[in-house]
Each structure stands twice: as C-alpha cells, then as structure tokens.
C-alpha cells in the first residue's frame, strides 16, 4: 500500500515527540520511553510511581480525539497486515523491548539524544532488523 511523503507533518510531529521527551525529563526526571512507562505501569514501585505513568498513558490515548477536535479527522490509520501478524508481531515486540531495555522512543529518541552508546547500538540494530524483516515479509514471502 502506497503512502504519501508528508515532510511537514513528519517534522512537526517529530518536534512534538522531542518536546515531550524534554518536558518529562525537566519536570519528572524520567526518560520518555513507551516501553519503560508501560512496563512500570503494571509493576509500579509505589502509588506515586503508578500515578504519573497512568497520567501519561491517559494523555497518549486521548491524543487521537484531541487530533480529531482540532483537525476534524481521526489520524490516518491503515493496518496492512493480518491479525496473526499483529499478534505474533506484538508478542515479539514485547519480548524484544524488555530484553533490549527500550524501543524507538526510549533508545531512538531519548537515548540517542543523550549520546548513549547502548541506545545508539540498539537503534542501529533494530532499524536494520526491521528493514530486513520487511524485505523478507514483502519481497520474499510476498505477504
């Protein structure tokens, strides 16, 4: 499925992702990593620890509705893969981000911005394996 190149939305949206990362470190002293925030939500160290995680997750989930109120449309959303691939992919993502201590937001944005060698290595690794996987799925298996 073709998608349009959207440079302005990409730059603007990316800047907001970066801004949220900076604000969370400035106010709470925390890394804006989706994996860490989600995992800690289920295994919090205290009520205070749980509540800021819950508030962030709630903010994230309410974003599409805020987007709808401002623009009049829901964000573009097309899932070009089967339910089996979503579920298998989700399980694999969950295992990988737990072992690898982070995902695109935690390593790819926050860690890289701190010039952390671990995050730079992790980001290069997952970008490469994602591209290889997409190549295999689309061009070898033809799914």
């Amino acid at each position: 499925m073709e998608t349009l190149f959207t440079p302005y939305q990409a730059l603007g949206g990316g800047a907001l992702i970066g801004l949220a990362s900076v604000l969370l470190m400035w106010t709470h002293g925390r890394i804006m990593g989706a994996t860490g925030i989600l995992a800690g939500f289920f295994t919090p160290s205290s009520l205070a620890d749980w509540s800021w995680r819950a508030a962030i997750l709630l903010g994230m989930v309410s974003a599409p509705v805020a987007y709808l109120l401002v623009s009049g449309n829901m964000p573009a959303f097309n899932v070009p893969v089967s339910t089996n691939m979503l579920v298998i992919g989700g399980l694999i993502v969950g295992c990988g981000v737990t072992l690898g201590s982070g995902c695109t937001s935690g390593h790819g944005v926050c860690g890289m911005a701190r010039l952390s060698p671990r995050s730079i290595a992790a980001t290069l690794t997952f970008m490469l394996t994602t591209a290889i996987t997409v190549y295999i799925v689309r061009h070898i298996l033809g799914m």
Partner: peptide, 16 residues
C-alpha cells in the same frame, strides 16, 4: 533484544 524488537516491528508495523 533490539534485534528481536525489530523483527516484531517489521512483522506488525507497530512499535510501543
């Protein structure tokens, strides 16, 4: 872990 995450991302199209 990072390599495994990429495989899942490539299959599903979603990161956390």
């Amino acid at each position: 872990g990072a390599a495994i995450f990429g495989i899942g991302w490539g299959i599903s199209g979603f990161c956390p």
